[in-house]
Amino acid sequence: MDERSEPTPATGEPFAGGGPADSATEAFVAHRNLLFTVAYEMLGSAADAEDVLQETWLRWMRVDLEQVHDHRAYLVRITTRRSLDRLRSVKRRREEYVGSWLPEPLLTAPDVAEDAELAESVSMALMLVLETLAPTERAVFVLREVFDVGYEEIAAAVGKSPVAVRQIAHRARRHVDARRPREVVSPGVARAALDSFRRAFETGDLQGLLDVLAPEVVLISDGGGVKQAAPRPIVGAGKVARFIVGGLGKAQVGLTGEATVVNGSPALVVRVNGGIDGVIAAGVEGGLITGLYYVRNPHKLTRIASETPLVLH
């Protein structure tokens, strides 16, 4: 394969070349961030989303653009189909995953947090809810509820009739609404709660943790069998606080939490003696933390050094 045909736009890197592929390349690059966001919301994995973009690019380069009236819609269709194929294959892999599975955290720009719709759609809490949907339900929900794609287009993307897609969308929406957080809080409120948590976390202050944790708070930690983590979710403020103080807090010297923005929400990069130990994202309602999502699996921490652009349009 020569340099000009190398599919570098799928990686987001510059593409140098000329000739008939230029218009296809320009269209792909123009919509790349959108396509990544679609794939990531369907898969919960940046690595898998990047693979889907590579497959989308290769398929796109074989398309006769004179027959395509809407480049964006066609690219979203290819991305959705490739994401569905991959989602079905990774379901088995996730069933064999060691311990709890969490989405791969992404360092995002502060303006993502200001876009309430986008921030909620990529939040750890909602991404975990999406994991409970069947692959086609997830695709339909993401395309319809997050990206506002029309039923006809979704039908073409998932291989169903528009009538069936409407039914699937209704079922998926009802399923998600019953499980999604009841309250969307401002970044400022979330940051304040997480700051209180950080201070107690760093000092091993049990009472400080109890003061900021909701009574039925849930902690999920993901070590992927590579780093130690709770094998199952821990429920209840007392149990969560004792787990943090006993297992993560005072037992570790040099433990710090660095404020950051992950998946559009305030989060902490946890360091032990300067080295990255993991990322903690939090769900907040009523000023209290209702969910803690601690990703320690080092294979999932490659996207916290530089921002990943996410868009809805």
Rank of each mutant, 00 (worst) to 15 (best):
D115S: 05
T79G: 13
R138F: 06
V90C: 10
L84G: 09
V140N: 02
S83I: 07
E145M: 08
I154E: 11
T80C: 11
I168Q: 02
G159R: 10
V146H: 10
L128Q: 04
T132W: 04
A155G: 13
G159L: 14
Q67L: 11
V163T: 13
L75P: 06
L130N: 03
D64H: 09
L143M: 12
Y74H: 15
V158R: 00
S100G: 09
R72D: 09
A178S: 10
S123G: 03
M124G: 01
R82W: 02
G150D: 15
T80G: 08
M124H: 08
P135M: 09
G99M: 07
W60N: 05
L65E: 12
S121P: 00
V98G: 00
R77I: 08
H69I: 11
L130A: 09
A113W: 04
R138V: 04
T108Y: 04
R62H: 09
R138K: 13
V76I: 15
A155T: 10
L102P: 10
Y151V: 15
H69Q: 12
V76R: 04
R138Y: 07
R93I: 13
R174K: 14
E96T: 12
H69M: 12
Y74L: 07
I154T: 13
L107D: 02
R81T: 14
S123K: 00
A119D: 02
R144P: 00
A109F: 00
E137G: 15
G99A: 08
V149G: 00
A125W: 03
